[in-house]
């Protein structure tokens, strides 16, 4: 069904090569750094290593692993990343999603309330004093709590959810994915689907039932 013409091939080739070049530009410096670290130290210091490592050894890495406190620090970092990421994704996605709900009281105000904090910078000393008053100095929570709501991610989630077709959520509700806490909404959806309000439907149904007896 899909014909690949001459122009298409040129497009693809240029595309592949273009990305190849940029990828090399991004990756080569890292390769270059890496071959310096595993090459003979005096050779790399004199700038003799250009394309390939010479006198390969791993002593530099062994030395790094001997640094005291490295494992604890690594553990703290990994923990912070894992816990922090989970909570940030949860918190920011939840709040971002709530902001797509047009019914929320003061929605625009609260959204702006969150967003503008991105541009506030109160410098480090008041920050430290706040943390101290909250008892979070030398406390793991200092990493976690302030990061739960990230205004930037809230904006992203909101934009993304708003770009989804609204009908998707409505049809999911009809399928019982969310349920009807809100009776007004139920009535409306019911009317859209059945053509009459639930009360009308019930009345008519009762009439039919009575007539049938």
């Amino acid at each position: 069904m899909h014909k690949t013409g001459w122009g298409d091939k040129v497009f693809s080739t240029v595309n592949y090569i273009g990305f190849g070049i940029f990828t090399l530009l991004c990756a080569f410096p890292f390769y270059y750094l890496f071959i310096q670290t595993i090459s003979d130290n005096s050779l790399s210091a004199s700038g003799a290593i250009t394309w390939l490592p010479k006198g390969i050894h791993f002593n530099n890495y062994v030395e790094v692993l001997k640094v005291k406190g490295l494992s604890t620090a690594a553990l703290v970092s990994v923990g912070r990343t894992v816990i922090g990421t989970i909570l940030t994704v949860f918190g920011s996605a939840f709040l971002g999603y709530l902001f797509t709900k047009r019914k929320m009281a003061g929605r625009v105000f609260w959204y702006r309330f969150v967003v503008i904090t991105m541009y506030f910078n109160a410098s480090i000393i008041p920050w430290f004093i706040i943390m101290m008053n909250l008892g979070m100095v030398n406390n793991y929570l200092a990493y976690i709590l302030p990061a739960i709501v990230s205004p930037f991610y809230v904006i992203l989630v909101k934009t993304f959810v708003e770009s989804l077709p609204e009908a998707l959520e409505e049809s999911a509700e009809i399928d019982g994915a969310i349920g009807f806490d809100d009776n007004k909404h139920f009535s409306r959806t019911f009317r859209e689907r059945v053509g009459m309000y639930p009360t009308e439907y019930r009345t008519i149904h009762q009439v039919i039932e009575v007539n049938a007896e």
Binding site: G91, F94, L95, W110, F113, V114, T117, F120, A122, S123, I125, P126, W127, I129, I130, L134, L145, P146, I148, V149, P151
Partner: peptide, 16 residues
Amino acid sequence: FLLLILVFGYFPLYGW
């Protein structure tokens, strides 16, 4: 979540 923003986004502004 709004409370967190208040505490960590607004309280430190007294430093201004």
